[in-house]
Design a protein around this nucleic acid. Sequence first.
DNA 1: ATCCCATTTCGGCATTTGACGAAATGTAGA
DNA 2: TCTACATTTCGTCAAATGCCGAAATGGGAT
Lengths: 108, 108
Amino acid sequence: MNEYLKIFKALGDKTRLRIVMMLKVKSMCVCEIREIIGSSMSTISNHLKILKEANLIDFQKEERYINYELNTSNKTVQIVLNILDNISDNEIELDKQKALKTNRIEIC
Amino acid sequence: MNEYLKIFKALGDKTRLRIVMMLKVKSMCVCEIREIIGSSMSTISNHLKILKEANLIDFQKEERYINYELNTSNKTVQIVLNILDNISDNEIELDKQKALKTNRIEIC
DNA sequence: ATCCCATTTCGGCATTTGACGAAATGTAGA
DNA sequence: TCTACATTTCGTCAAATGCCGAAATGGGAT
């Protein structure tokens, strides 16, 4: 599938757009993302897979967690992600303060 | 629905992305778009409605046709549409030469 | 006012998508 | 190797989406 089509499809879902906006705040593991989004682990995992395939996010292993982060190495993706700076948190019902406070140790 | 979410949803469909790329070439009526895309009138019309609701396109009445064109008045949309300049025609299977040659009179 | 024709709406169908819980997998540490 | 736990995969379901042809609509021209 075309690179751009994949990106637009990936961002054209409210849950995934919220995840990307969260990862703009800080990188997180699946269970931290779940803390904010509220869906099941498998659902979150599936969304992350789609975001990964669109090259929007990347991940790094850290201890026994997998830390997801925005992919800043791809130029196309960078440009698209910059656009998201214009979205205000309440527009997509995202509590950035809460997102900042997630903590792996207490959750997982 | 959030403005950006609507835009991403609208562009996250191959047919609609192709339509937008076509309208970058020139403004067209539904039947000209059909000439290139090949789907039914109703299908095209539905896609145009979704693009309109995302503010990506606009239209002008001209004689008994409705001419669809990219909406250049909205800043957000402008930024997103600029990104599309990086998509090559063959990536989304669009024949720009053919798109340039469509002609309302002979089709409708 | 009526005709013509471009466009939209409607109803129905097949496919895709997003959700879940349960089971499977993978990996770090004992 | 075994254990514990984070994450992914699988099977299934309901809802959303995209498509079509037919019927309805609407606006320009006669």
